[in-house]
Nucleic acid binder design. Structure first.
Length: 431
DNA sequence: TATGATGATTAGTG
DNA sequence: CACTAATCATCATA
């Protein structure tokens, strides 16, 4: 407490304006007083230095005393000058902020994704894209719309979270900025803080907060991307075709086994019947061909089944002589065992002959071929060939060449022989 | 949860 | 461009 009187003692120095030290040097107290003044300033500085050690009340009182001190404005000005220089030099080195390309990109993306930007229309572009992509997948319109709305709901959710967080962030940023500004303004009365410096501080705060904002934007972008890939990537939303579609496709495949390459029209027809797209039909046949060829044995049972089916309907529909060779038309794969080896051998030969005759023929080739395929399966089944080697030995001369590919068929099989539904085959032999 | 089935994608080919 | 072969990612089931 003994500092107080010292603080208050006067030097008679004019302290009015902001001219700084130079002015009060001239203020008529004389050069000899210089040392004393320095001493005095030293004291004040000492007090400032030790002020932190004091209690708060004491500090408050001290502050008040300092504020009231006649030397204070002068000292303050000096400090301001020094500070200004320092700050300016700092400023110079920090000023040029690189235009944040990353942030711009994030902003653009969020805008494009409909997360930021106008409230209502947001996401419509994405929704349209999703719809288009889903339509390409063609899994079924109801599933499409369901997934579509699901996608939109999730996007809205992300959007909501984003905006909530953004609001929170802005609020926090503003609060903090105001707080700091008030604090600095308050402090600027006792320590040299220029408005510029406050401004700079605000800038620093904003930068800090904008890095948080960037993180928010980044994670939002990530979330949207994940959502997008989840909903728009066709692979991810793969659905098995329904049973009927698979049945139709399989019937076509096995009834055209020697040349399982549906024409454009046939694909179109199949696509329509199976409620899938043409490219899905192509995919299916591509997969089927390769998988069948890779492991014929594995598909034996299936082949027999469809062969039996088509054979049944073929024989029942048509009363053609060629069908006379057909064994007693097994209704299912289960009845396969009833045929003996020699029988099937004969049949195989006859079918080969039939095939050989008709395959290159211009007229009813495709239709007869269909029958041949059908019969061949019935035969293979009756023969009891169950391993793939035996099967491929059997089929190779027919459809699959030694290279592992099907023989080149001059013309794709006609859609006319396409089955109308599971179990019922329209065989063109009646033509 | 491991595993096979299956629809979609991709690189390469003619 | 249609196709094959390989591969991926998901579905379905034991």
């Amino acid at each position: 407490m003994d500092e107080q009187p010292r603080l208050m003692h006067s030097h008679g120095v004019g302290m009015a304006g902001h001219p700084g030290l130079a002015q009060h040097m001239q203020d008529g107290t004389g050069g000899t007083d210089g040392d004393g003044r320095k001493q005095d300033i030293g004291d004040i500085l000492q007090q400032i230095m030790t002020i932190t050690d004091q209690s708060l009340d004491e500090a408050q009182a001290r502050k008040h005393a300092l504020n009231c001190h006649r030397m204070k404005p002068a000292l303050f000005n000096i400090l301001c000058d020094i500070k200004e220089k320092t700050v300016l030099s700092i400023r110079g080195s920090q000023e040029e902020e690189p235009p944040d390309a990353q942030l711009m990109r994030l902003d653009n993306m969020l805008l494009a994704e409909g997360v930021s930007g106008p409230e209502k229309g947001g996401g419509s572009a994405v929704a349209a894209a999703a719809a288009a992509a889903a339509a390409g997948g063609g899994v079924g319109s109801d599933t499409n719309s369901a997934e579509h709305s699901d996608y939109r709901a999730k996007l809205t959710q992300i959007r909501g979270i984003y905006h909530t967080e953004l609001e929170k962030y802005e609020q926090a940023c503003n609060e903090f900025t105001t707080h700091v500004m008030n604090l600095l303004r308050e402090q600027s009365r006792t320590r040299p803080i220029s408005p510029k410096e406050i401004e700079r501080m605000v800038g620093i705060i904003h930068r800090k907060f904008s890095s948080i904002q960037m993180q928010l934007k980044q994670s939002t972008c990530e979330a949207v991307m994940i959502l997008r890939s989840r909903f728009l990537d066709a692979r991810r939303k793969r659905r098995n075709f329904n049973k009927q579609a698979t049945e139709i496709l399989n019937e076509y495949f096995y009834s055209h086994l020697s040349n399982p390459y549906p024409s454009e029209e046939a694909k179109e027809e199949l696509a329509k019947k199976c409620s899938i797209t043409m490219s899905q039909v192509s995919n299916w046949f591509g997969n089927k061909r390769i998988r069948y060829k890779k492991n014929i044995g594995k598909f034996q049972e299936e082949a027999n089944m469809y062969a039996a089916k088509t054979a049944v309907s073929a024989t029942s529909v048509s009363a053609h002589g060629s069908q006379a060779n057909s064994p007693s038309t097994p209704n299912s794969a289960g009845s396969a065992g009833s045929f003996n080896m020699s029988n099937s051998g004969d049949l195989f030969m006859s079918v080969q002959a039939l095939n050989g005759d008709s395959y290159q023929g211009a007229g009813v080739g495709a239709n007869v071929q269909s029958q041949v395929d059908t019969l061949r399966h019935v035969i293979s089944q009756t023969g009891g060939y169950s391993d793939s080697i035996a099967a491929s030995q059997m089929y190779s001369p027919q459809g699959i060449n030694t290279n592992g590919g099907w023989q080149d068929a001059p013309t794709p099989s006609s859609v006319n022989s396409l089955t109308e539904g599971p179990g019922s085959v329209h065989s063109d032999t009646s033509n």
